[in-house]
Write a protein that binds this DNA or RNA. Structure first.
Lengths: 218, 218
DNA sequence: ACCTGAACACCGTTCAAGT
DNA sequence: ACCTGAACACCGTTCAAGT
């Protein structure tokens, strides 16, 4: 019985039955041992979760297509990260800030730092930009954890809810109920991602001109 | 014993002792009743939390300063929302997407929709922009839940961690350890918020010109 | 209608005892 | 060194019984 085996069992449990099923009892049963023996390899449940989540964040393995500029690479990696979290909602539900210093989080940090520094940002701004992207991805997934906005049933439900509001209090929700009900989580994400990257592009242009260097590509 | 009293007690508990202390036992003790009696006013604990969180999101009460343009108003509201969540970390830790249809969430939605539609976005893009902002605020707070990036002790800890990495694997983390350790959550938030709003500004300009209308202000 | 008391099946964690 | 068995103090929830 190794720590690796424990994390494997925990990950399977988390993926197949969700975060609520991630109990020391269930992990022990899956491994065919007692709960107590888990505590030989892990301080407590919190440490187990921290190790599990950092391990689940090893997405940085696949690199974006060559020949893409920094914005395309950033968009590609952000979408990859988001899709990974959507495929593993249990991971997203457990993700806090505390794991940011795990090896896989650090790898992602190093990668995105390189991206934004190469693009022309100072280390400080590059760090903030990289964090902002990760922040946006996580928030996007988390705010839609229990929801499936592309499900027509949920869309219908939202339309009815908007439409049945008091038009004096929520005029826009009533007026645009149909449109609002159709906006999916994917739409939101793409609009926000594009806006963020546009903002970074202009930030790069500005910091280039104020430093007396011409724009990098024109 | 009313539902209001239960939620009051729960909110006090959440604010003073954190999410882990938000148990039916503790709520009952605070109210001087038994756990079982809570279930006369609430279906189960999950419903209690949902009601509690939506009630805790009633921040939209205070309006941004008059005379500000849409971007200033959006920035003001976003900062207000973030500061509210930072002041009530328990709320942020429990916030999921499921409460998005509560009365206070709807009020925030109506408000930000009005902001972006007035600014010149279509209802669909306005909805996506508003959600993106909320997403970014929540992600920002959530990724820093257990952390206090402005604490010099934590800053020192991060600097040492970055600096002691393998320079062959994490060259940028090692090289810029000092700078990276000093970037606070506030810095990240302001950079990301500014980038998002810049992106929205350009989105508005584009949708104005492609619709044959001149730019709204020049 | 509302509340109590007691029970239920679960949770994470500890620790003496075994090998 | 690692694992077991049994216990501990906690969870959320239910339900017959009281008023």
């Amino acid at each position: 019985m190794t720590l690796e085996a424990i994390l494997d069992a925990a990950m399977t449990l988390l993926d197949t039955q969700g975060a609520a099923a991630l109990t020391t009892r269930n992990i022990a049963v899956a491994l065919g041992c007692t709960q107590a023996s888990l505590y030989r390899h892990v301080r407590n449940r919190e440490e187990l979760v921290t190790l599990l989540i950092d391990r689940a964040l090893s997405v940085a393995s696949s690199a974006p297509p060559d020949g893409a500029d920094w914005a395309e690479k950033a968009a590609w990696s952000s979408r990859l990260f988001r899709e990974h979290l959507l495929r593993h909602p249990g991971v997203a539900s457990l993700l806090r800030g505390t794991e940011r210093l795990g090896p896989n989080s650090l790898a992602g940090m190093q990668y995105s730092l390189e991206l934004f520094i190469t693009a022309g940002l100072s280390p400080r701004l590059a760090s903030a930009a990289a964090s902002s992207l990760a922040t946006f991805v996580l928030g996007s997934v988390r705010l839609n954890l229990g929801l499936d906005t592309s499900d027509p049933e949920e869309s219908r439900h939202r339309r009815l809810l908007f439409r049945s509001r008091d038009a004096a209090v929520f005029p826009l929700l009533v007026q645009y109920a149909d449109t609002l009900a159709e906006v999916t989580s994917d739409d939101e994400f793409e609009v926000g991602l594009n806006a963020l990257l546009t903002g970074f592009r202009i930030l790069i242009q500005d910091s280039n001109t104020t430093h007396g260097q011409g724009p990098s590509r024109g």
